[in-house]
Structures are given as C-alpha cells and as structure tokens.
C-alpha cells in the first residue's frame, strides 16, 4: 500500500454542497445545449445575432426595356440618309 490514509467517508456535508452539485448538473446541461445548438447550425446554416443588423439597401434602379435592335438600326439609317441628303450626296 502507499502508506497514505484513506479520506474520511463519515464527513457530513454543509448545506451549500447540495446546491453546488445541482449547479454542476446545470452546467453540464448548458454544455449539452451548446453542443446541440452548434450541431443544428451545421444542418440549418443559420445563426442568432444579438447586434442589430445594418441592412444596406441599394436604390432601386429604373429599368427601361431596351430598344429593339431593328428599331435602333432603322433610326441610325434614317440619320445617315438625312445627313447625306443635306450634303446633297444622295440621289
């Protein structure tokens, strides 16, 4: 044997001790809760954030329908014809 005396097993614990053990169980429950929460994050991909999110919204752009290519070409052709007429180069 080691030569050391075994601890006293007849010791009567003070009242705080019982609450201390309850607190240990409470702490273990927190650990299990955090594990479950983190595992759930690996499935859901969602987090809880306490800080108020700043949402940056872009100003809505006015979208106009692009002019059809045929119309654009016709307009350009018209402008060219007008120029040629004015210059007297087109018969």
């Amino acid at each position: 044997m080691s030569g050391h005396a075994a601890p006293d097993e007849s010791y009567v614990y003070e009242p705080w001790y019982k609450y201390g053990i309850y607190f240990l169980f409470f702490e273990a429950a927190i650990a299990v809760g955090v594990t479950i929460y983190s595992l759930s994050m690996t499935f859901s991909g969602e987090t809880v954030q306490f800080k108020i999110k700043k949402v940056h919204t872009k100003p809505v752009a006015v979208i106009t329908a692009p002019a059809p290519v045929a119309n654009t070409c016709a307009a350009l052709q018209q402008q060219l014809d007008d120029c040629l007429n004015q210059a007297g180069l087109k018969k």
Binding site: A31, S38, M41, T42, T47
Partner: peptide
C-alpha cells in the same frame, strides 16, 4: 451552409469552436 459574410463565418466558426470549450470545462467536475 449559407454563412457568407465575414461576420456570419466568424459566428459560425466561434460556435463550432465553443463546443470543445463548453464540454471540456463544464464536464470537468
């Protein structure tokens, strides 16, 4: 998983890392 911004990645990484610390600490007693 959908964590795209740096802040979201930091929160996710911290939460995963916390699993070790919580279990190592709170199961110690």
């Amino acid at each position: 998983l959908g964590f795209e911004s740096l802040q979201e990645v930091q929160i996710a990484a911290g939460s995963f890392a916390a699993v070790q610390s919580f279990n190592a600490s709170l199961f110690r007693p």
